[in-house]
């Protein structure tokens, strides 16, 4: 599939009808989403025939983009049931199979046995995957995490989990202003074997919430590719 075609299909997706500020629900625009997944597939081969998980999937844009590019199985996780409903409708509209699990990725982190519980949560998606070790089966995690402006550290909580789950690669968006911090933390604390900014993008944030004073704001975000350490999944 061509990049333009991917972008235009993603442009047809329904977005949050009633975005929730506390969850930092901002739609991932078709421009960014298409480039993120297109790069993952065409530069790194991390999408087609893979199991892809979309963390904090919201309306499902990134996961569905993975599906359009030939992912074998796509799983969307989100804490918000309304978002999951929209994502599920979006999947139907594109005639794509995508599984969804309602769970809280952030909560897991605050608990002592984070890995165990994550494992567990992920496995719940086994409604159709039977009893797979989801911690082992997910090849690639794609995500547009909360940037952590409302709840500090939310972005890194997502990253930490993603690096525990993915066996192959994690693609994520983080504010460019946090670049050094993200890199240091991923390599030092989250066991990433590499952390690379693939490109810097403009994230055009439409005026969604009342506290937004300007009609539209561009913020600079980095598209990252992280590679987890190979042996890490054994600890799950």
């Amino acid at each position: 599939m061509k990049l333009k075609q991917l972008e235009s299909l993603l442009g047809t997706l329904q977005q949050f009808s009633n975005p929730k500020l506390e969850l930092e629900q901002y739609p991932t625009g078709p421009h960014i989403a298409s480039r993120m997944l297109y790069t993952a597939e065409n530069s790194f081969g991390d999408v087609s025939d893979k199991v892809v998980a979309d963390f904090g999937c919201g309306c499902g844009t990134l996961g569905l983009a993975a599906g359009l590019l030939g992912a074998e199985h796509v799983i969307g996780l989100d804490v918000d049931s309304e978002s999951l409903e929209i994502a599920s409708i979006n999947a139907d509209d594109l005639e794509l199979e995508m599984d969804f699990v309602q769970c809280d990725i952030r909560n897991l982190i605050q608990r002592g046995n984070a890995t165990t519980s994550l494992y567990t949560q992920l496995v719940s998606m086994s409604s159709e995957l039977g009893t797979l070790h989801v911690g082992q089966i997910v090849d690639t995690v794609v995500m547009n995490p909360p940037f952590g402006t409302r709840r500090k550290g939310a972005d890194l909580d997502f990253l930490s989990m993603a690096l525990k789950v993915a066996s192959q690669a994690v693609y994520s968006l983080h504010k460019t202003t946090t670049r050094d911090h993200v890199k240091r933390t991923a390599l030092r604390d989250y066991n990433a074997s590499s952390a690379e900014v693939l490109c810097e993008l403009r994230y055009d944030l439409p005026q969604l919430y009342k506290f937004h004073k300007k009609k539209e704001v561009d913020i600079a975000v980095d598209l990252w590719r992280f590679v987890p350490q190979k042996n890490q999944r054994n600890t799950l």
Binding site: V79, S81, L84, E85, S88, D99, F100, V101, Q102, C103, D104, N107, T120, Q121, S124, M125, S127
Partner: peptide, 8 residues
């Protein structure tokens, strides 16, 4: 509707 709710 096919979505497991694992919220605690």
């Amino acid at each position: 509707k096919g979505i497991p709710n694992m919220l605690l």
